[in-house]
Design a protein around this nucleic acid. Sequence first.
DNA 1: CACCAATATTACAATTTCATGACAATGAAT
DNA 2: ATTCATTGTCATGAAATTGTAATATTGGTG
Lengths: 229, 229
Amino acid sequence: MKTRILLIEDDENITELVRYNLERSNYVVDTAMDGEEGLMRASEEAPDLILLDWMLPNLSGLEICRRLRRSPETANVPIIMLTARADEPDRIRGLETGADDYVTKPFSPKELIARIQAVLRRVRPALAGQKLSFEDISLDNVSHRVMRGDVLIHLGPTEYRLLRHFMENPGRVFSREQLLDSVWGHDVYVEPRTVDVHIRRLRKAINVNGLTDYIRTVRSAGYALDSRR
Amino acid sequence: MKTRILLIEDDENITELVRYNLERSNYVVDTAMDGEEGLMRASEEAPDLILLDWMLPNLSGLEICRRLRRSPETANVPIIMLTARADEPDRIRGLETGADDYVTKPFSPKELIARIQAVLRRVRPALAGQKLSFEDISLDNVSHRVMRGDVLIHLGPTEYRLLRHFMENPGRVFSREQLLDSVWGHDVYVEPRTVDVHIRRLRKAINVNGLTDYIRTVRSAGYALDSRR
DNA sequence: CACCAATATTACAATTTCATGACAATGAAT
DNA sequence: ATTCATTGTCATGAAATTGTAATATTGGTG
């Protein structure tokens, strides 16, 4: 699932510049031309981050920021202000109002993206890495969650570690002994055949309905997480 | 409990300037004169925020930043870089290494404080006197009040800090040991199982009537505050 | 096809891990 | 001094997880 960013900005040139660069960096960009529209979009779309112009027709950026923070739906969405006003009192006022950061125009796309990532890393660690994915399976180590498509999957501790190990090394075949070593630990003695049972449990858990089974059995070698059959 | 800030800076003039201003703003300031000392202090004192000079004798600020991020104890402590180098490539490099913000020398004390507040607001909202909210739970760190919907919830001190910690890091799974570290303090010895009991008390207090329980137990891993089951 | 070896599946008992209630110790408030 | 709230620990039962063995199925080979 891509990270969605809402851009509230009235200058079309900037809008297009930002959209182009963010989309190239794999973000989904939604835009609003003024404050009213911005507030509406923000509560409807629940974006992961908001880029907010300081100078807007009708409502000022500062006021938007205040309102976004007040509404429970958007109170926790990080906000980066875009501003031409580089003077210190304004910067301080912006930060005090609840913006998480601000970028002064003219800004370079690279810096904007670096700032976005820095803010996201803080606010939603899950959005900035730490997340493994393979085809439509995703595993988040921070929240310990596994999803297949958008279905939440429950795994026992061992199946979780097993899947994580596979997802950390996709495509690679592991023998039962290797799996026991790296998933169970070098010091535990467990029957190699036990691995079969856990593979079974993992398969059962992640292949809800008739979904394709990405765990490939390699006869007399072991198992692998793999898209090819 | 005051907010503790660790300043890693070799220039004594700056050190004194910063110390004076931060202490006047009610922060507790600890200082280190070089990188080695900084790393040591950081893991021992567990500060709430680190101010890090870019140019340091021996280890560079960037390298310190990297090491702080790598070590689990300090990985989540916000870092603001102090730098004379204002050019963009450096700024980007700093942000990418894991700094949360940077301030260019010479800086005004007012702006430094505003930045500290902004970073803390985003990382540890409670330290910046912010209201926290998660779904229909809200926690006001100023009045020490917790509401579920519009019902006022009474919590003991420990349950309050526990909930605050969860609300500062929603979705994230914490082991009992981690919780003891950050909620009880890194120097207290308490049985890990005691955490269970406090989780129970928190649940009981917060899930009045048949309201959904947002505290998720992650078997053999810990607990998390989470919306979906 | 018939056979063998390897894997899949099932069932079950043992073990871990967690939820819950009770209790004594502590300290603050009256 | 007494009451009350809070806290840490333990004991117990419930629930989830785990390893193993027994049995079924599959794939390859002659």
